[in-house]
Write a protein that binds this DNA or RNA. Sequence first.
DNA 1: GCATACTTTAATGTATACGTTATTGCAATC
DNA 2: GATTGCAATAACGTATACATTAAAGTATGC
Lengths: 220, 220
Amino acid sequence: MGAMSNVDRALSALREMIFSGQLAPGSDHLETELAAHLGMSRTPVREAALMLQAQGLVDVRPRRGIRVRPVSAQDMRDIYDILTELESLAAARAADAGYSTSDLATLDKSIADMDAALEADDLRAWAQADDRFHRELVRLGGNARLAMIVAVMRDQVRRARATTLFMRPKPSKSNTDHHTVYQAIAAQDAARAHDIHHAHRRAACKMLVDLLEKHQFHGL
Amino acid sequence: MGAMSNVDRALSALREMIFSGQLAPGSDHLETELAAHLGMSRTPVREAALMLQAQGLVDVRPRRGIRVRPVSAQDMRDIYDILTELESLAAARAADAGYSTSDLATLDKSIADMDAALEADDLRAWAQADDRFHRELVRLGGNARLAMIVAVMRDQVRRARATTLFMRPKPSKSNTDHHTVYQAIAAQDAARAHDIHHAHRRAACKMLVDLLEKHQFHGL
DNA sequence: GCATACTTTAATGTATACGTTATTGCAATC
DNA sequence: GATTGCAATAACGTATACATTAAAGTATGC
């Protein structure tokens, strides 16, 4: 049935614990402890840890434990630089692909959800819809490797985004940006889709980094 | 001293076998066989395989073995799209960083090596120097994650590059491009560095993909 | 001859055992 | 008091044993 191996379980559990902060950034955790906590042997935990290391979420340091990688303001800049380029490329490619309106339904829906969430002042719902928007945008770009890289980078900034979610100004500009990108894609205007999204990401990055540096977060 | 674990050995050995074609693209290999071949138990082989999977070099498919991932023409396009964007960004960032001539010595050297190799008609030496150039360029970009992604993508197309190395036209245009990029970086002209490198990569991609499709390689 | 259910097989996923080795604490010395 | 060397410890890396399970083969019924 559920082809759910212990490695899979360890992966989801560890990811969840990392994203939720239950495993704090910078904290170390021995394989044995995690295994005991997850109710399995060291082997699957170890394999999961190696995968998470490959995704940049933890560092595996012999005899010092599995460390949850903190994300500094500089890390954020580096990550957003990558996200900016790759997502913008995806937006351009999506525009070139000549999708029909129905192909873009999911994208449209997530924009509507963001608008609604903003209206209702529900920031969590907004963040979720924003996530869906970006994921779908990248999917429409049609480059599976790019989508994977973007997913990995987004995971790395997930905690920081969650932390700053309630400190940032209301993302209304963000929503109009999304609308514009959507329209550019629907109109098959690749350059416009690219440029708008690029600017959108740059602004988001600046806002986030400023927040982090202003509040002196040293590793989120 | 040599902090060389069996996992490390398995990693280098497998990578080498994959790049050399000793493990053919598309071929399957059981953990037990590889372990026997490498003279170690399944455990480190398995861990190495997981890491190589994370880097997109193999697929680990339960009960069917570890499969060396073939790279199609479409894969090449996808990979080069990513390389194009990220390397160009790195070039721009390197230009912005305001490096001195001595900081750029390695870059300069690799360009000279490429010129010399081209002169001597030594394509292997040229390819090696080209590799160094691109790696150094990306390093100068100052974004470690970007450098890692680029390295992973380059590994994925390594076999294909090696295969087509002797089928492609002499890369003399390539060398002038590198010169120009170098000069733009030295002159701190980010836009120019970006655009030249971008065009350089686009051309390289087109050349490669055309070759692959012309010769009907279906998975390299 | 073909499809289906069952048996067999073997490769994997996981647990566990064990040797190695980095780290920690302690003691002895300067 | 600080430092260096040593011993004790415990975490890891690896090997191995075992349970699980998907795939292949076999036999049976049609």
